[in-house]
Amino acid sequence: MKSTSSIMNLLAFFMTILFTISNAVPVFKRDVFVPPITYPTSTTVWNNGEIHNVTWDISQAPVNITNKLGRIQLRQDGLTTPLVLADGFDILLGTINVTVPLVITANNYELVLFGDSGNFSPEFTINGVSE
């Protein structure tokens, strides 16, 4: 009986230490950053193989961003495609060069800017190879 009591006391002691340590560690609040994409716009037309600067507004960036690594993917018909146009860049750059992917027919597309969250550009046109 005494050994069970000793084990319980030891367990309570360690739990108290863990609780004290966890409360002593500073906690930094992280903010989700959803920067609006400013280019391409709804009137933009891209052609296969061109290089364009995708831009987004970083003027309202919080101090503590959860994820500063960005990725840009192509989106069509409400679905994000697996096509990655840029990856691993600092979201606070506010701009990144991308090469327009080869598409077969002209269509409306969007870009998705990932970092903390997914943010969509306005729909814009990419001319296809049959144009």
Score class of each variant (00 low, 15 high):
residue 33 F to D: 13
residue 42 S to V: 07
residue 56 W to Y: 05
residue 125 T to Q: 14
residue 103 V to H: 10
residue 75 R to V: 15
residue 17 I to N: 00
residue 105 T to A: 11
residue 7 I to V: 10
residue 38 T to V: 11
residue 30 R to H: 09
residue 42 S to K: 10
residue 35 P to R: 11
residue 80 T to Y: 05
residue 70 G to H: 05
residue 100 V to C: 11
residue 76 Q to H: 11
residue 32 V to L: 14
residue 62 P to S: 05
residue 67 N to H: 04
residue 24 A to E: 04
residue 51 I to F: 04
residue 81 T to M: 13
residue 54 V to Q: 08
residue 16 T to V: 13
residue 9 N to S: 07
residue 29 K to D: 10
residue 38 T to A: 12
residue 80 T to N: 04
residue 120 F to R: 08
residue 2 K to E: 08
residue 104 I to S: 10
residue 38 T to W: 09
residue 114 F to C: 10
residue 19 F to A: 12
residue 54 V to M: 06
residue 64 N to M: 09
residue 79 L to N: 04
residue 126 I to V: 15
residue 34 V to Y: 06
residue 81 T to L: 15
residue 131 E to T: 12
residue 32 V to R: 06
residue 18 L to C: 13
residue 19 F to V: 05
residue 80 T to V: 14
residue 130 S to C: 09
residue 115 G to R: 09
residue 10 L to W: 01
residue 11 L to T: 09
residue 73 Q to V: 09
residue 48 N to T: 10
residue 102 L to F: 06
residue 71 R to T: 15
residue 27 V to C: 02
residue 61 A to C: 08
residue 113 L to W: 14
residue 53 N to R: 10
residue 112 V to R: 08
residue 80 T to M: 09
residue 24 A to T: 08
residue 13 F to E: 09
residue 99 T to D: 09
residue 7 I to D: 04
residue 85 L to A: 12
residue 6 S to A: 14
residue 90 D to P: 00
residue 25 V to S: 07
residue 2 K to W: 07
residue 98 V to L: 02
residue 64 N to W: 06
residue 63 V to Q: 14
residue 53 N to G: 00
residue 55 T to S: 10
residue 77 D to A: 12
residue 5 S to W: 03
residue 13 F to M: 02
residue 93 L to E: 01
residue 46 W to G: 00
residue 69 L to N: 15
